[in-house]
Design a protein around this nucleic acid. Structure first.
Lengths: 219, 219, 219, 219
DNA sequence: TATGAATGAGGCTTCATTCAT
DNA sequence: GATGAATGAAGCCTCATTCAT
C-alpha cells in the first residue's frame, strides 16, 4: 500500500477534517489526522502502519508510544465521529421549537451539517466499523442506536400529534437517514452549494416524506 | 484476516447472491461467489487470497488459473453490479408509461429491487471501487454515469412538463439516489418487508420529494 | 520472470543458434531453441517453464511430453555444446599438419569458430553448468576434460619438440583457453570481423604466447 | 534452492572475499557477505531471499531493514567489484613507469590481482549483471567502460611509440582482457601458484601478444 | 501430442508489533 | 518520546510439475 490510491473515495480537500477541540495535542493528534485521511481514502485494511507514519512524518515505531495498536486509532476516530453526530443532534433538538416538525428539521439539518463538515470522519465511521472488534465498536454502536432513537422519537411524536402522515415509520426513518448519511460521499468544496443550502433542501425533503403540511414559512 | 469478522457489514444470509445467468461456470464461478461474500463482509483489502481459496475450497494457486490478479476478481464483481443496476433501470424504463411520473417510479423501483435482490453485490460495487486501478474501474464508472443520466433525464422532463416541482434537480437526484443505494445496507430476509413493499414506499417518497401531484391512485 | 530482461548477455541476433543436424525435429527442437535463447539471456534459474512455453508457442504442460524436467533441457543443451566443441577440435586436429605448431593453430581456430558460430550455446554451456546435478553434468564435464587434454597434449609435444618455449604449460593452456572461451561473450554480427579474422588473429596470439618462432608463413 | 548446489562455480574457500574497508558494518555487511558467497555459487536467480537470511542468520524480513530489494544487494556487490578493479588499475598506473610497456604490465598485473584476490566478487560482477535493471547497472557499466579505456589508451600509446606491434588493437585488448577476467574462474588457494606468479606470467604473455620487444630483463 | 486445471512449495516483499538504545 | 533493527506471520503471486481429458 505504498503507491497512490486510484479513485479517491473522498475529496481530500476539505477544510476542517476533525471537529474543533477534539484533536489530541501534539504527535497523537497528527497521527489521528493522518489516519483520518488515509482510512477515508483507502480503508483501514488498505492503510499500513507505515503509511500512517509516513504521512505523520514519524517513525512507525513511534506510533506505539501514542496508540497501543492500529485498531485503537480507528476506534478513536469512529468514536469521535459518532459523538460528533450525536452531540450535534442533541444540541439541535435543544434549540428547536417544540413541534415535531421543528424537531425533525433540526435533526435533519444537524445530520447534514455533520456529514458536510466532517465528511472524512463520517466516511470512516460509516464504512470501517467492520474492522473493529466488538468491544471497540460497542461505544459507537451504542451512540448510533441512541441517535436513531432520537429520530424515531420525533417521528412517533409527529404521527401521534397528527403532524406527520406516514404509513411506516421505520421505512421513513431509514429514508431520512439515508439522505443524510450519503452527504459525506458527495458534498465538498467543489459543490455549488453551501452546507446550509443542502441542509435546508434536505430538511424540506424530509418534511415532504413525512407529509408534514407546509403550513406557512417552511424553509 | 483469518478469524471471523467482527461487525458484519451485511447479513450473509441472502438468497441469491449473484444475478441469474451471469455467474461463470465451474471453478471461476465459485471463486466469484466466494469473493462476493468476503469482499462484502471484510472489504477487498481485508480479504486475502488464501481466504478466497479456503472458501472456494481450492488451492490458492488455482485462483490464478482463472483470474490474473486478485484485483480482477473485484473488477468483475463491480462490473457485474453496475451492469445489473443499469440494465434493470433500462428495462424498467422500457415498460413504464410515458409520463415522467411513471418513469421516475420505474427507476426508483428498479434501483430498490437491484439493491434488495443483490445487496452483497451492491455493497461491493459501492464501497470497494477505490481498490481498483483507474483502468479497471473505468467500465463501471461509465455505467454509473449513464445510470445517473437516466435519472436526471426523467427529472428534467418532469420539471419541463410541469409534473415535478423541485428547485434544484441535482440535489433532488442525489436524495433519490441516496435512499435507493442504502437499501443494500439494511434490507434482508430478516426485515418485515417484501422487496416490493420497500420499492412501493420509496417510490412514493420519491414522488413526494419531487412534489409530483398525487393525481389519482398513486401506489 | 515475465518481463523483459534488462541487459542482454548476448546479442540475440546470431544466425544459426544450434549446430546443423543436432536440432531435434518438431516441437522438441523448438523447445530446445527457445531454451537456448532464454537460458543464454536470463540464465537457467531466471527462465521459467512458462517463459519457455511462451516462446515456443505451446502450453507449458506440453513441455513435459518432450522433456521429463526443465533440467533435462539444459542438460541437452550443455551436452550439445560440449560435443560440438570437442568434435570441432578433433576434426581440426585430423586435418592439421603434424607439427605442434600446426596442431595448436588448428585447436585455437576450432575453439574460436565454435564460440563465434554458436555463442548462445557456448554461453549456456559455460555459465549454467552449476544448475545441473552431478549425474546430468558428468558427460559434459568428461568432454571438457578430454578437450583440455587435447590442448595440453599439443603443448606438451611442442615443448618436447622444442617448438614452444613456455615456462608453465598449465598457465599457458589456461591463457589460451581464456582467449577462446570469451569469444562467445563479445563476438557477433555487429563486430567488424569475420570469424576467420578472429580465428587467425587469436591463433597468432597463441603462437606468441607459446613463443613459437614465427618461421615463415604465419597467418 | 535449499539443497546444496551441484557443480560449484567457484571454490568457496577463498581467504578474503571482499576488499578491505568496503564491507558495511554490522548486519548489512553480513548480508552482503552472504550474498557474495551465494550469488557466486548459485547465481542471483538461484539464490532466494531465505537462503540469504539463513546464511546471514537473520530473519528474512530483516533483510529489508538494510536493503530495499534483493536486486539492491546485487547492485552493491557489482558496484563494489567494478570500483575495486578500476581503482586497482588506476593505482597501478600511478606507480608504473612512463613507458607503454611498463603501463601495460601494470594494468595486466592489477587485473590479475583483483581477480585472484576477490574471485567471488569478480564472478558476480561479470556473470550476474544481466539480473540488474539498466538503472542499477549503469554505474558499474560506466566503470567498466572507463577501465577498458585505460587499457586501450596504453595500447594506443604503445603502438604510436613503436613499443608495440599489433595489427588490430581492439582484438589485442580483448585477448588481454580475456586472460585476466578468467582468473576469477580458476585461481584459488588450491592452485600451485601465488597471485604474483600468475600476474608475472600473464604480464609476460601480454607483452608477447603486443609484440613488445623483450628489451632487457623483463619479468 | 496437446492442454486447461490443479497443486504444494516457494518466490519476493510487507505486515503489525516489539525492544534496546 | 523517538528510533533503527529485528521478527513471525502473512501478503500476492509464480514456480515446476501432474493429471484427466
Amino acid at each position: 500500500m505504498t503507491g497512490p490510491n486510484w479513485e479517491p473515495r473522498r475529496l481530500t480537500a476539505v477544510k476542517a477534517e476533525l471537529p474543533e477541540g477534539v484533536t489530541p495535542p501534539g504527535t497523537r493528534g497528527r497521527i489521528l489526522h493522518a489516519a483520518l485521511l488515509l482510512f477515508a481514502e483507502r480503508g483501514f485494511h488498505g492503510t499500513s502502519i507505515r503509511d500512517l507514519a509516513r504521512v505523520t512524518e514519524i517513525n512507525s515505531a513511534t506510533l506505539y508510544a501514542h496508540y497501543a495498536a492500529k485498531e485503537d486509532i480507528l476506534a478513536e476516530l469512529i468514536a469521535l465521529g459518532h459523538v460528533e453526530l450525536y452531540n450535534g443532534m442533541l444540541t439541535a433538538l435543544s434549540t428547536a421549537g417544540p413541534s415535531a416538525r421543528d424537531r425533525l428539521v433540526a435533526l435533519v439539518r444537524a445530520q447534514v451539517h455533520m456529514h458536510a463538515d466532517y465528511p472524512l470522519l463520517a466516511v470512516v465511521a460509516n464504512n470501517e466499523m467492520h474492522a473493529l472488534s466488538p468491544q471497540k465498536a460497542a461505544p459507537a454502536l451504542s451512540l448510533r442506536e441512541q441517535a436513531r432513537q432520537l429520530l424515531y422519537g420525533v417521528l412517533r411524536d409527529g404521527v401521534a400529534a397528527g403532524e406527520f402522515a406516514i404509513g411506516d415509520q421505520v421505512l421513513a426513518g431509514i429514508a431520512l437517514g439515508s439522505i443524510g448519511i450519503r452527504v459525506a460521499n458527495w458534498f465538498g468544496p467543489d459543490q455549488p452549494y453551501t452546507r446550509d443550502q443542502v441542509a435546508d433542501t434536505f430538511a424540506e425533503y424530509a418534511l415532504r416524506i413525512v407529509c408534514a403540511l407546509p403550513i406557512k414559512e417552511s424553509s
